[in-house]
Nucleic acid binder design. Structure first.
Length: 270
DNA sequence: AGTTTAACCTTTCTGC
DNA sequence: TGCAGAAA
DNA sequence: GTTAAAC
């Protein structure tokens, strides 16, 4: 459920908490959620945090050291990075005690998320992020057109494919198709370049608006400061099957597409 | 090649 | 109120 | 949310 806008809000709220902070102590409660070296050093103990960056739904916490030691964070369904006050919260798998007395925790009850450690930022880029498509906020209409052209899958399946386009999940794909007035069951390779221009324009608009509203909190997602998002109140189709279209009042159609619940307006979207 | 189904794991909701 | 099963 | 196996 954390998609690009939610992950970006985690990044934006994480940055002021950790940037420039020395990591005093790292506690690893569950080493098995870490892929790669699961040592305090590989998780930045003794290092100063330089930056937090994002690609699609992926985050990276980068040390301010010569090789840029890096932790790649993926939140999965229920993952959280949170400032934690005093006790050990449930399902807190790794905690970072910072020099300013704040403590950051990686909390993930279902453990679909995880941490990946790299000796250098370049290693993360080569080994993991190079496989992802362009970030949804950065992709150009031509890049999207190229991606869609090479698959006969539905538009929905294609937009969900992180190797084609990084950052969208079930919520924002449905919202995007509605805003662009395109049916999610169109065959991807049949879309025109103009369709792709429209999709990219609407995608940027949608994601930027969602980011400004703090993302969508449906269940587990909160920002690093514990605040919920507000964009769920502005969803036009997601979770609204059977309700009336906000644009034309036609009952919204719900079906399974690409294995995911999908909602669209059979009248507005073509 | 593409769609479908199940799996991963835990909490929370639903219905009897 | 409790429990099993579904849903998230 | 992602991945693997089955159809």
């Amino acid at each position: 459920m954390p998609e690009l806008p939610e992950v970006e809000n985690v990044r934006l709220t994480l940055l002021p908490l950790v940037q420039g902070q020395l990591v005093r102590k790292v506690t690893i409660c569950r080493p098995d959620i870490v892929t790669g070296l699961a040592t305090p050093l590989s998780l930045l103990q003794g290092k100063v945090i330089g930056d937090v960056i994002r690609h699609g739904k992926q985050l990276a916490i980068i040390a301010d050291d010569p090789s840029q030691t890096t932790i790649n964070v993926h939140l999965g369904m229920t993952g959280r990075l949170m400032g934690i006050s005093c006790p050990f919260p449930k399902h807190c798998h790794v905690r970072w005690q910072l020099s300013n007395t704040d403590t950051l925790g990686f909390i993930d009850p279902r453990r679909f998320g995880g941490l990946w450690t790299f000796g250098a930022l370049a290693d993360l880029q080569d080994q993991r992020w190079s496989k992802l498509g362009p970030d949804a906020l950065v992709i150009t209409p031509d890049q999207l057109a190229q991606g869609l052209a090479k698959t006969k899958r539905s538009l929905k399946a294609a937009l969900l494919d992180q190797n084609l386009l990084a950052g969208l999940g079930n919520i924002y794909v449905d919202e995007l198709c509605f805003n662009a007035k395109i049916r999610p069951d169109r065959i991807a390779c049949a879309l025109t370049v103009d369709d792709c221009r429209l999709l990219v324009r609407e995608m940027r608009k949608l994601l930027k608006t969602a980011i400004k509203r703090g993302g969508s909190t449906l269940r587990d997602y909160v920002m690093v400061n514990g605040q919920s998002g507000k964009f769920q109140n502005l969803h036009k189709v997601y979770g609204r099957a059977g309700n009336n279209c906000v644009r034309c009042k036609t009952p919204l159609h719900g079906q399974l597409l690409a294995g995911r619940t999908t909602v669209f307006c059979p009248h507005c979207q073509q």
